[in-house]
Nucleic acid binder design. Structure first.
Lengths: 91, 91
DNA sequence: TACATATATCGAAACATTTAAATATTTGAA
DNA sequence: TTCAAATATTTAAATGTTTCGATATATGTA
């Protein structure tokens, strides 16, 4: 993972709304629906859409269309790669 | 570590210059001098000072004055706490 | 004390981010 | 086909970030 990618993921993580979205996955079993995120945050629908887009662009979330609905799964692989880079900073 | 702190550390990490500073610690034994960071980056001294300030404000770097010079050590503890929070997002 | 070196702060320009209102697109259902 | 629901895009305002030049502050040295 190059530094531009680390920068992009870090920026996606640098907002409490987006952190809250990611944390919500712990409470759900495996996926989160777009509509659930709208309910979770005290923001308008376009703002939530904007935040979700940044998480998807950083590849932290993988979107899956289900008819009219959109569900997301957490991309554990990219999260692991990011954590590995941070661990590399040590020692 | 609360979400505001995660946000702050993430923001500190969301810039390739600051990532490069942190990575430079791997090449040095244990600390990095301010002047070395000025040499490392292709930026003016005030810009480098600004970046270092953000890393210090996020507590990723611990500053130590040595006469006229300033040296930094990597705060491995806060980095570990941040990594723990990211690991918590999984499963 | 006077000077030089190291670092920080200020002020401003350029650019990016966050947010909401309005509107558009996509898709399922009547 | 028409309507309603879910999500995305556009536009614009407010705010924050990055960078530099100029200048200030702190501290070691002659």
């Amino acid at each position: 993972m190059d530094n531009k990618k680390i920068e992009k993921i870090s920026r996606a993580l640098s907002d409490t709304s987006r952190i809250a979205i990611l944390q919500e996955f712990k409470k759900k079993k495996d996926c989160l629906y777009c509509a659930e995120v709208n309910d979770l945050l005290d923001l308008t629908q376009p703002s939530v859409s904007h935040h979700l887009k940044q998480l998807v662009d950083a590849e932290l979330l993988l979107p899956q269309k289900e008819g009219r609905n959109l569900k997301y799964v957490l991309n554990q692989q990219i999260l692991n790669e990011y954590i590995d880079c941070l661990n590399d900073l040590k020692d």
